[in-house]
Write a protein that binds this DNA or RNA. Sequence first.
DNA 1: TAATTTTGCGCAAACGTTTGCTCAATGGTT
DNA 2: AACCATTGAGCAAACGTTTGCGCAAAATTA
Lengths: 339, 339
Amino acid sequence: MSDKPTTIKEIAKILKISVSTVSRALNDHSSIGLTTKMRVKKLATELNYEPNQKAIQFLQGKSHIIGVILPELSESFFSTAISGIEDVAYKRNYTVLLAQSHDDADREKLLVEKMKTQRVDGLLVSVSKTTSTYEHFEMFKKLNIPVVFFDRIPPIKDIHYVASNLENGTYEAVNFLLKKGHRTIGMINGPTTLVASHERKEGYIKAMISNRLKFDPSLIVSCDLSETGTIDVMNTMLNHRRKPTAIVTFNDYVALFAMRYTRSLELEGIDFVSYANLPIINYMDYTPIASVEQFPYKQGKKAADILIDLINRPKNETGTEQAYFNVVVESELIVPTPK
Amino acid sequence: MSDKPTTIKEIAKILKISVSTVSRALNDHSSIGLTTKMRVKKLATELNYEPNQKAIQFLQGKSHIIGVILPELSESFFSTAISGIEDVAYKRNYTVLLAQSHDDADREKLLVEKMKTQRVDGLLVSVSKTTSTYEHFEMFKKLNIPVVFFDRIPPIKDIHYVASNLENGTYEAVNFLLKKGHRTIGMINGPTTLVASHERKEGYIKAMISNRLKFDPSLIVSCDLSETGTIDVMNTMLNHRRKPTAIVTFNDYVALFAMRYTRSLELEGIDFVSYANLPIINYMDYTPIASVEQFPYKQGKKAADILIDLINRPKNETGTEQAYFNVVVESELIVPTPK
DNA sequence: TAATTTTGCGCAAACGTTTGCTCAATGGTT
DNA sequence: AACCATTGAGCAAACGTTTGCGCAAAATTA
């Protein structure tokens, strides 16, 4: 019966016109008469015709697939981002080829190869923590396949990327705490190698300065983000000559560790502000009083949009300087309304 | 330079042999001489040849894409499952076309259409909460495209599915609580329409009976899984003539709601056991003392494997009864070792 | 009315690969 | 020496669609 999908040929045969006419009619080409168009379209819908994407993609040398390589699909930040990527891809008629590196540089490299084999039209990557070489990405550039980095940006030049700017979010966070009356605000920052750590620090400083307060560098401490590391820096904080009454932490995990620790010491009254990684925070008993939202969904959308734009940009004339998209998604302080 | 990928044609031209010979040589066809094979393969690797998947897929009428429709990508259960699906698809050379229904039946229907348009070779679905009609899936059956349901199974006949059996996990959970000395065990179950609710109940009953205890149906209450709903049923529980000393909850969210509520009443000493949805539970202060693991990763893997098997099964001779895969992944009680 | 433009449509090539068929050359058997 | 089997390789079709080019008929202009 309806076993094999209808093709353009069959429509042509039934209507006794040529395949090309049918094709053009369906694509609303200007050189086809209105009546013919109508007839073709009518029959097409009757026969439930749907163009064979494979054939089109093959013919046009486009796979209409974008590769997405992320460290961990099951991490909330990334799965939310995927959600955004998928929504855009869907809307723009692209397919998402998904892969996860599990934060392993070797596997990541393999995946990049695989993506090449699959002839993806573009690549969206959040690099693994352990990635230290980047030739596999350079290769894509040579092949003229656009690559957009996303959230975790490698430290190389001439790349497209989308990342969140944590400076202003942090600024708002610190400002919020200042407005609440806090004067001694600690910050548990991440490793100094991360761009993200630097941005957080800048935001902190900016907030202090704009409130005409002196910036005390010793109130910002680096942390390896583990639980024991967090406890260590908390001890430093709590023994500081100026004991903070509020603390900004690098992420939700650190916040939870720190809060758990202070409670175990039966310390009360320290306000925590964090960066939103965990939607589940809504279900918890003790949570930061505010958090900086990084909009992973939005970031994913943006990155996908840029990638697809790049894929469809007019052939870059050789010799012309290539422009690089460096998009920054602003972060924002979210203060939950108490229920 | 290396702008356009190498094709089989170029290899043929360089070696002054025909395209078909090259193709066969690369595919280790028996009718090609060893020397020719060697020459071809050597040049192929030198030229970095990689077959154009699109062309092959087009020619063979196979897209090598499996569609995956899930309610929410960012929910941990599903993103973990995806992880498993992706790993299998990757290994078996399939591409995952991802889409999320956001638990909206209409969107789900649209997505199914889209999948059809994209000519997926197979479909993996966890149906949305609001889905109540299933013709769009029937259509796939007519087109001879296999569909495997997964975790959330629609209540219709003659389908392939993979789901977890919660009966034995629940049995273990209740048993565990009984061993701990509890005699009055409550259960906050989900809507009675769900298969999952039924299985949980069966497991509960089985555990009671095998311990020679009387089963009290009034200790099992249905809940809409919302926070207010949870509080309602908790009130019922707490005012029960036999107040439970332990409660099995439908999922982690319900457990958290319930635990928060009991703490707000300054009630202590009720043990909770839940079903593992949330990895983040490790970071929390108050958690269930045990949980039933449903192995979403394993389920995803299994479902993907079955789907791809179905895709590649020999053409089902008309008239032959079709066999349906109904795979059950056993659940298991996990008791965290206290740190 | 003749010359020109416009309109509407068909022909055929192209995309990269696989595969059934054909066929020549080689080697082995009577 | 005549015959057959095997081996190795080429020809060409096929998959479904798009698109440049060509061409006839109709419509417009001069």
